[in-house]
Amino acid sequence: MITPVHYMLLSAALFIIGVVGVMVRKNIIIIFMSIELILNAVNINLVAFSAQLQNGIGQVFAIFVIAVAAAEAAVGLGIILAFYRNKETINIDEMNLMRS
């Protein structure tokens, strides 16, 4: 029998994989994709509890998370393009323009 604990463990594992991707990789596009993995982990949790509690509120919040993820991807990729046009790199270690 699959309980919510199984879904929470899956969600936590996916979240940790995303956190490792954010912390370890240097390519900022892959860091953005890791953030999408983290948001998906949160959505799995929300939908699992929505199914457990027999109401649709968790699914509504998952829809809001997807909308925010779409907005974040659009603005973030716009920033990456603008940065690449100026500096010819997407290495996160070279993104230190704001450092004095």
């Binding site: 779409a70 716009g78 393009l81």
Partner: peptide
């Protein structure tokens, strides 16, 4: 959320 998407769309166009 719909306003957020509109703002993000305009922001992405301005940035790119």
């Amino acid at each position: 959320a719909s306003m957020l998407l509109l703002v993000a769309m305009i922001g992405a166009i301005v940035l790119a």
